[in-house]
């Protein structure tokens, strides 16, 4: 159970139970639907961008604790970031979870650091990255499905 506590830390359980920015957004600038076909996690990400800055970001959907808390933390981390900063954070987060090593452009993860325990559970990495991939798709104004496959 000790190992699992590294994965299911209090902050993760809290974001799962009380997800932040968990709402549908009316008239978003960007929107994407993401799903993990393997496990059935589904998430919608909504974006409002003003002058290249993430003014608002929200999500709704249905996922496991890792998926939901990662989406929740993502929304709090992204607000106020420029598009370029947001992309950099996405890339850094992805590198940290997939254990591809650190890259020169990586930025500090801050509070998102608690999610890096997921890398010890390879089948759950996609749960943690789904919201980010969906955000990425929304940002690129790609309408339609984004799959983590």
């Amino acid at each position: 159970m000790d190992n699992l506590r590294d994965l299911y830390q209090e902050v993760i359980l809290d974001h799962n139970k009380n997800p932040r920015n968990f709402r549908k957004m009316e008239e978003p600038d960007g929107f994407a639907h993401g799903k993990n076909p393997l496990c059935g996690d589904q998430i919608d990400v909504y974006l409002k961008i003003t002058d290249g800055v993430v003014e608002d970001v929200s999500f709704d959907g249905n996922g496991c604790a890792i998926c939901t808390s990662s989406a929740s933390m993502m929304t709090t981390a992204l607000k106020g970031k420029t598009e370029a900063e947001a992309e950099a954070l996405f890339n850094s987060f992805h590198h940290a979870l997939t254990d591809e090593g650190t890259f020169p452009d990586d930025v500090p993860l801050g509070k998102l650091e608690v999610l890096t325990g997921v890398k010890d559970y390879p089948v759950r990495v996609k749960c943690a990255t789904l919201a980010w991939h969906t955000f990425d798709a929304a940002l690129k104004k790609m309408q339609g499905n984004v799959s983590t496959e």
Binding site: L4, L7, Y8, D41, C64, A65, I66, C67, R124
Partner: peptide, 11 residues
């Protein structure tokens, strides 16, 4: 969520 059940039961 069932995936969390699966991971915790595995522990």
């Amino acid at each position: 969520h069932p995936h969390d059940i699966g991971t915790i039961l595995d522990g």
